[in-house]
Amino acid sequence: MGPKSREIRVEWSPHSGGVLRTVRTMDSMDLDRTTTALLAALHDSANAAAWEAFDQRYRPIIVGFARSCGLAEHDAAELAQATIVRFIEQYREGKYDRERGRLGAWLVTIAKYRLLDTRRKASSMHIAHGESAIVNLDDDRAVGDAYETQRRLAILREALKELREKTKTDPRTIRAFELLYYHGMSVQAVAADLGMQPQEVYLAKSRVAARIREIVARIEREFEETPGELESSPSRVSAMLGG
């Protein structure tokens, strides 16, 4: 899904009188991809693109979170599905107000209660494992950390995808990183494999890190967990959207 110059219908907010706008994004900030913009677009039940973008962003995080809470892959996927659906329902009912807290915290709360419910139904046997590795759902801090970990992983995955698909990075540069870090090869071996000098392998690795850092920073801005914490505060966004 290429966000650049893709058209998306955006209903700015319930307070804007329900006016629908058409926005063409063009700057690297991908305004239509900020969480604020996505949430705004979700009000329009016909906006499948917004739904899809939201789902794509949060589903993997919730799946990862559910797995770190002890669910098997299949159950985790189901839980993520149910969580997202429930969130969108609540959001459209006006129950979620961003001023009241981070979106992640809201999602985690939904997921957590679903999880507790699943566990109750599953078996009382599991509850007896008070000392297991799985995230203790009574411990808000641990729950929050687990969500943060998954969010970070999701952002990194997306950053890598973007590095591969959307930048003009030499494939050998990425290959050098993969051989070093996935396959645990030595710099000398990677250099021989790719016909590079060891020095070039080091540079390739540094370049991947630097690009990833840039992309991650941008995605983090898109994720802006609470409104107003960076430049795309509603008023600013609305101004940029021509409102």
């Binding site: 990862g64 566990r119 599953a122 494992h129 297991s132 998954q150 995955r157 870090y181």
Partner: peptide
């Protein structure tokens, strides 16, 4: 960062501790 990236990019999104 790169270690983290390699971890993130593994097909398995997270370790799967069974209940």
């Amino acid at each position: 960062l790169l270690v983290e990236l390699a971890q993130a990019a593994r097909p398995e999104p997270a370790p799967a501790p069974e209940l």
